[in-house]
Design a protein around this nucleic acid. Structure first.
Lengths: 224, 224
DNA sequence: GACTGTTGTTACCGCGAGTAACACATGGTT
DNA sequence: AACCATGTGTTACTCGCGGTAACAACAGTC
């Protein structure tokens, strides 16, 4: 074998192929939602199933690869907003807005990333005769986790919490990401308000307005 | 038909049957995770598939019924903590703790409720020839949504926000629930800290400590 | 005893994930 | 030239699962 040249050519060719396949898969997922079948994806790419499986192993592999692309893109956009040289509140609002704008612009992609099929099987994996029947592989967790860890990092780097700040920053990172995600998910379903309003309300929440607000008169009077 | 007596007897019998089936399904889901098959559930209940389908229509129906039971139980526990006659911070902490204790105590149930298979297909439903191939039906969304709405209600009832408080309360409800959920999910994976610490950190976050904390010295000096 | 409805069964369909086995090209080795 | 190694592509299958049709058995009613 002549090794170098040709094998390299082939490798890059394979990578290009892989990208093409991913783009085809992207189109199908965008059209059919997360339950897009391997047959459909293969058809869209103009080839047949086994090729997909040679490239990605199984459906989970394809979906992971697909998710990684979008996740990376989203993450870099968020990082930019988060690392901007501005007041903290402005940074927070701009990050929230970036996220919401992203999911608003491409809800199909969002749904694919966040609400895919699951197939967890934590400890149940160890069951006999059950090593091959399972498929997809979590994506929603990875994305949310990555976001949470990332945000935790930023917090621990830029915000001065007391002792044990590392741990608290991670907690907050995941908590804030979850807040953003859940509120975004709810908001996306039937936009009950403008994006600006949602952003500023969430920022208000993070800014402690829940603690500051007074009690409302409850029927039963002040004795309650 | 003799109507009254016997039909009523049959209805209650059917209901008892239904409960038995749900309990069997519960056991299987607890053992096999969310991807438990209808065959397995039927076997566990000591009967065969068609009976399951007669009772629940399809897999989504069964899972919905199953989810409803757990959801209702969790919700009532949370409501109790949330409606207790205590300071707001204490109520918030106790609610968070209730939730976390619940998911800690029965992680399998939690995983079933929160990370089930999905099969969304929003607008794609309208595709031809695709009215029968789809199955499960979202659960995670319903639970989170219910929690969020519920919390929003409580906030609007008990906290005095400014004008337009209704909308902000709903936003906050969903946001806080999402925070709790994401932090809990992350925490559950590999308990990085005690439950108390998690609870108090999240409460701190809601109490505006993020806004109060000072900037940390960033390399590049104060000019940044 | 014939009629009706419920409870249960077996045996099947359709579909999607994943695989085995075979066919064709290409380019280096002898 | 013939040879074979490797990557690309196909067809045609297995297997498991959701879901259903068709039939069997057994109440209680008229």
């Amino acid at each position: 074998m002549e090794t170098a040249r040709s094998s390299e050519r082939q490798r890059t060719a394979a990578e290009r192929r892989r990208r093409e396949l991913l783009e085809a898969a992207d189109r199908v997922v965008l059209r059919d939602g997360p339950q897009a079948s391997m047959n459909a994806i293969a058809a869209e790419a103009g080839i047949t199933k086994p090729i997909l499986y040679r490239h990605f192993g199984d459906k989970g592999g394809l979906y992971r690869a697909l998710a990684k692309r979008h996740t990376d893109a989203l993450l870099s956009a968020l990082r930019a907003a988060l690392d901007a040289p501005a007041e903290r509140r402005a940074r927070v609002e701009s990050t929230l807005d970036t996220y919401l704008a992203a999911i608003e612009a491409r809800p199909q992609v969002y749904r694919f990333l966040m609400h895919p099929a699951d197939g967890a099987a934590d400890t149940a994996d160890a069951s006999p005769t059950a090593e091959q029947g399972f498929d997809v592989g979590r994506h929603s967790a990875p994305l949310l986790r990555r976001l949470g860890e990332e945000l935790g990092q930023v917090i621990v780097e830029r915000v001065d919490l007391g002792p044990d700040s590392e741990q608290m920053a991670r907690i907050w990172g995941h908590g804030i990401v979850g807040m953003m995600h859940a509120a975004g998910d709810w908001w996306l379903a039937d936009r009950p308000c403008s994006r600006e309003r949602l952003v500023s309300s969430l920022a208000d929440l993070l800014w402690g307005r829940l603690a500051e607000a007074g009690d409302r008169d409850v029927k039963g009077g002040p004795g309650f």
